[in-house]
Design a protein around this nucleic acid. Structure first.
Lengths: 339, 339
DNA sequence: CGGATTTACCAAAACGTTTCGGTAAGCCGA
DNA sequence: TCGGCTTACCGAAACGTTTTGGTAAATCCG
């Protein structure tokens, strides 16, 4: 009695061939308008919903895209990009009956294994790549596996992969200019790990902006994309003489780590030192003083990336190789002040 | 030439029937050990990997489980549970060839639609339910849809759903006792939204502990699970007279929001007011003073929840209805001090 | 009016896997 | 030696869908 209703049942009830029912329901040509309506009505009445498994097998597609996260749990925990990014992905794929398969890998090597496995079993039709690194080994692997992929990279090309980019250079430049306007001349930079493309883009934007303004690019401190990097950079900074009067940080978490540590050391922000972040995560509004930052739009990035991936899955020839998302805007708050 | 190698190819190459090849590869009985080895060798040599689609259709399973997040992006952004939870889920399902399908819903009504759709298309074999609410409508819906589900709930029963629980009552009680030992007598609580089961469990644990110690349960301030709730509670608290000397917050983000706002208002933590959180998120270690909190173990919870769901998918009769994960431990840091 | 084209539909194949029923061959006990 | 049981294997069906090739009927055009 309960039993699932298949397209065969619909066809039988509507007194047409299974193939005609399929054509009718999928708005394919070869069936009259009258029949199409009848089939659709019957389908609705019977509560027919196509079974994904059948559709997958027959159409040789999985109607799923993959996203693999490398695992360091503490990074996952606070990565601001993640949630909003996924929300954007969902917006783009849901209308096309696609779903997102999320995997978590314990290490980079295992991450590659994840891709190998997804490709071998064809569980997904393509994947999204985040946090692109310099000479990223994933690009070559995915090409070898012939698994469509889209890179989310802030920066120029990425090893022949189609990419979606939201440039962070303009935001970093804007933050740097903002500091220059406030009268700062010794403006340091806390950069991320050298292996990430993000790191280089932001480092160069900071440097170029200072050079352009005729200023000597101040010290570069080694940080990372988490709180710990900011803390470490703070320690380094405290030993500097002369000390910079402003710091452009690679992202918000790093900036917050820096700010909190400097405050612990007795410095006053922005009186002694001005700080800028990048991302625009919520907590930046709550720290004291609130963080001047660049508001990125991860949901937009996710949406565009997923849309581009679907386009490449559909037809790699005709899909664009690069889509740009407007850069984030500078949000001026209390952590920056006049020299 | 590249073309995918199917089980038929393997069977042909090993000179056995397709069905025998299947039995051999899946360690089913009915095939001799010699043949089994030969088939496996041939399969490996040919680089055979079973195609998910075929497996799904034939075995009437999707080998996937679902997780739907309701969307409020700013909550997603920083939810500490999320990343670690997913990592745990992955640990449990990966060995069974299962994958996680993640959906994001824009509202609660759309969240229910997500479940309906997953059930109708049988894209997943079961789902995980987070953030259980009082009289949660999802339980009834999933029962109606006959979609296996496991609830991640901190608390007693959940509408007949199998559940994994990591009690937060012991942690909240420990935090409260810790404050009592420090000499506090006016201990307030910042609770979450009343609709969540979490909220009630923690509220009651706080209250019971105070009553047990012969103290009057102090004021209950309305907060939520994000920074904003802490800020709001801080405003409320600042108007109180007499003011509590300690506050047990429903979670870390809320506690941090509270602490930052109180500090802005000129109060000194823990001199004027002691604060405790719950979760043990990273940033709690970085604020000044560092946050006394209860370290929960979301990865463990995710792992157990996924394992339980698989068990219920496999055989609902024989799987347990409840699995407990050891409660988190109190981590004493600088935000609590002697009265 | 007759041949060509189009339309509306159907039946069967295909996708890759698991599973079911059957069939020889081998083994056991009587 | 023979019936009954087990073992090892095979062929075919089944899962639910899309796609392909074919066939009448209807339409068009000269």
């Amino acid at each position: 009695m309960s039993g699932r209703v298949s397209i065969t049942d619909v066809a039988r009830a509507a007194k047409v061939a299974q193939s005609s029912a399929s054509a009718a329901l999928n708005d394919q040509p070869g069936v009259s308008e009258a029949t199409r309506q009848r089939v659709k009505d019957v389908a609705k009445q019977l509560g027919y919903a196509p079974l994904m498994r059948g559709k997958m097998l027959s159409s040789k597609r999985s109607f799923q895209i993959g996203l693999v996260l490398e695992r360091p749990t503490d990074v996952l925990e606070s990565d601001p990009f993640f949630g909003a990014f996924i929300a954007g992905v969902e917006q783009a794929i849901a209308p096309h009956d696609y779903a997102l398969v999320l995997q978590v890998a314990e290490s980079r090597e295992r991450e590659l294994d994840s891709y190998r496995e997804m490709a071998a079993s064809e569980r997904v039709d393509g994947v999204l790549l985040n946090e692109i690194r310099v000479d990223d080994p994933r690009a070559a692997l995915l090409a070898e596996l012939r698994l469509p992929a889209v890179a989310v990279s802030p920066w120029k090309e990425c090893a022949n992969l189609p990419m979606v980019c939201q440039a962070s250079a303009p935001g970093i430049a804007a933050a740097t200019r903002h500091l220059i306007k406030l009268g700062h001349t010794r403006i340091a930079h806390v950069c991320g790990p050298k292996e990430y493309v993000h790191t280089h883009e932001r480092l160069q934007a900071w440097e170029a902006t200072l050079v352009e303004a005729g200023l000597q690019p101040g010290p570069v401190l080694q940080g990372d994309f988490g709180l710990a990097g900011g803390t470490a950079a703070a320690e380094e900074l405290l030993g500097l003489n002369p000390s910079p009067t402003a710091v452009v940080c690679v992202n918000d978490l790093c900036a917050i780590g820096l700010q909190l540590r400097l405050q612990q050391a007795g410095l006053s922000i922005p009186k002694d030192i001005s700080i800028t972040g990048f991302d625009g995560i919520t907590i930046g509004e709550y720290v004291t003083p609130a963080l001047t930052t660049v508001q990125s739009t991860p949901t937009q990035v996710g949406k565009q990336a997923a849309a581009l991936l679907l386009a490449h899955i559909d037809d790699p020839k005709s899909a664009p190789m690069k889509v740009e998302v407007p850069a984030g805007e500078l949000v001026i708050r209390g952590s920056t002040g006049r020299r």
